[in-house]
Design a protein around this nucleic acid. Structure first.
Lengths: 256, 256
DNA sequence: TTTGAAGCATGGTCAGACCACAATCGTCAC
DNA sequence: GTGACGATTGTGGTCTGACCATGCTTCAAA
C-alpha cells in the first residue's frame, strides 16, 4: 500500500520555522526590533509543537538573527549586524585559526575600510572621529579609557565606509581578537604615538585622501601587530603534536 | 531560609552544553570529524535532559560547528570552515545588505588573497591552478562546466593564501552572491577573455608577483562586477519605502 | 552471490506539565 | 496621596516519557 502524502510533513520542522521567519523578514513583515508572538501561540499558528518551534528559533538566535529575552519575549535583532560572536572563536578552536591570521585579516579589511571612509565619509563621521581623537589625547594616562576611545575610533571608521558587511566582518574579528588580548596586561605601547597616528588617519579621511588613509591605517595596524607579537611566524615543519589516541579522546567526552 | 547554592544550577543549560563541548574542542579532546555520544547517553552524562542537550547541540550546529545526521549521529564539523551559509543571506534580508556591498567586500578580500597566494603559494597550488585554467579553456563552450572551474580556481587561490579565515570569509560571501546570481541566466560574458584573465592571474601567482596578482585579480573582479550590474549605485535620497504600519505587519506574522 | 526485509541505533517530534524570570498591578502602610 | 512590597500574569526554559523517521547492519531467502 503506497503511502499517501497529502501535505508535506517532511522537511524538518526546524527549517520550516527558519524559512517561515526568513520570508517574513524578507518581505518586510518583520523588521529589526519587532517582537514575535509568544511561543505557545506561534506554535499553534504554525501547527507544530512548541518544542520544534523553539528549535527553529534557537537556530536563528544562534546566528544572531533573533534575540531571546527570558520572561519578556523574542525579538528580531536590531542594532548593528553581528556574525555570531562566539562563532569565530569556536571556529578558531576547531580549525586552529592563529592570532596572526586574525590580525592579518583585520589589517587587510580595515586599511581598505579607511580608504572607503575617506571616499564616502560624511560630516557626522568626521565630527565623531575628531571627538574620539580628542578623547584619546585626553586619556593618555588612563589605559582603560584610552582603549575605549581607540575601539570607538575604529568602529566609526567602519561605519563611515558605507559598507555594513565589511564593518560587521571587522567587528567580529576585532572582538575575537580583543578576547584573546584581554588577558594580557595592557602594555603601555606609547599611547602618545598611537594617538598621533589616529590623528593622522583622521586628517587623511577628512581630506578625502583614500590612498593616504589606507596607507596610514595599514602602518598603524602593523605597528600594533608588532607590539602584540602577532606577526606571522616563519615556516614551521613537523608540528610534533602530542595528541592522545582517538580512543582515549573519545572516552573522555562525557566527563564533567 | 536562605537558598543554598552548592553548585551553580543557573547559567542556562544551553550555554552549559555549548561551553562543555567548546572546552572539549579547545583542549583537543574533540577533533573535526569526531562523533559525539548519542543524545540519550550524553544527556545522562551531563545530568541534563535530552531536550536541553538538543538545544545546545542545535546552537552549535547552527554555527556550523557540529553536523547532525539523522539516524546516524552527531559529529564535529570537518572540512573547510563555514560561517553559517544561511547567516549572510538572512542578515542581508534583515539589515538590507546590497549586492554591490557584497561584491565590494569580495573584491577587496579576494584581490588581497591573490597577493598572499603569490607570496605563499606552494607547488601543489600552482599545479592545481594550472589545471583549472586548462579546464576553463577546454569548457569555453559549456557555461555550466566553465562556471565550475571558475569557482574552483578562486577557491584554490583562497587556499593558497595560507589564511583560512580570509578564505572562509570569501567562501561565505561568494556563496551568498552565487545564490543571488543563480537565477539570472548565464550571460555568456565572453568566457574567452575571462579565461585569459585567469591565466594571467595564475602566471602572476606562479611568478610570485604579489603586486601584479593583486592588480589583475582586482581588474578581473571589477569586470565581473560590471558584467553583472553590481556597481555601487549613485547616492539616492528619499528611499520612499512603502511600509505597512507596524500593527498591520505584526498581525500577519502568524499567517502560513 | 545477490537481494530484500527485519532489526537496531540514533536523531526528530510531540504533548503536557512545571520552573524561572520580568513586568505589571493592586494592596496596604505611611 | 504616595511609596513599598507582594501577588498576578505573561513569557521563555526545562523536564519527562513516549513515539516517529532515518539510515546502517545483519541475515535469511531466492
Amino acid at each position: 500500500m503506497p503511502r499517501i502524502k497529502p501535505e508535506e510533513p517532511n522537511t524538518h520542522r526546524t527549517m520550516h520555522v527558519v524559512n517561515h521567519i526568513r520570508s517574513l523578514i524578507e518581505n518586510g513583515t518583520l523588521q529589526p526590533g519587532d517582537k514575535i508572538p509568544p511561543e505557545r501561540e506561534f506554535a499553534r499558528a504554525l501547527k507544530i509543537s512548541r518544542a520544534s518551534l523553539r528549535t527553529g528559533i534557537g537556530y536563528l538566535a544562534a546566528m544572531g538573527v533573533m534575540k531571546i529575552r527570558h520572561g519578556v519575549g523574542t525579538f528580531v535583532a536590531d542594532g548593528p549586524p553581528e556574525f555570531g560572536k562566539t562563532s569565530l572563536s569556536l571556529m578558531g578552536a576547531l580549525h586552529g585559526f592563529q592570532s596572526w591570521q586574525m590580525f592579518e585579516a583585520r589589517i587587510i579589511l580595515e586599511s581598505h575600510l579607511a580608504a572607503l571612509a575617506a571616499e564616502r565619509g560624511k560630516e557626522e563621521h568626521h565630527a565623531a572621529l575628531a571627538e574620539e581623537v580628542a578623547e584619546m589625547f585626553a586619556t593618555l594616562d588612563s589605559p582603560a579609557d584610552y582603549l575605549i576611545h581607540d575601539l570607538l575610533f575604529h568602529r566609526i571608521v567602519s561605519q563611515a565606509s558605507g559598507n555594513p558587511i565589511l564593518a560587521a566582518l571587522i567587528e567580529t574579528i576585532t572582538s575575537a581578537l580583543y578576547d584573546k588580548r584581554r588577558k594580557t596586561v595592557e602594555r603601555s605601547t606609547d599611547r602618545r604615538e598611537s594617538a598621533e597616528m589616529h590623528r593622522e588617519i583622521y586628517k587623511a579621511i577628512r581630506a578625502r585622501k583614500p590612498i593616504e588613509a589606507r596607507k596610514l591605517m595599514d602602518q598603524h595596524l602593523r605597528m600594533a601587530q608588532a607590539a602584540q607579537g602577532m606577526e606571522r611566524p616563519p615556516e614551521r615543519r613537523a608540528p610534533a603534536s602530542t595528541q592522545k589516541s582517538k580512543q582515549a579522546r573519545l572516552a573522555a567526552v562525557g566527563s564533567n
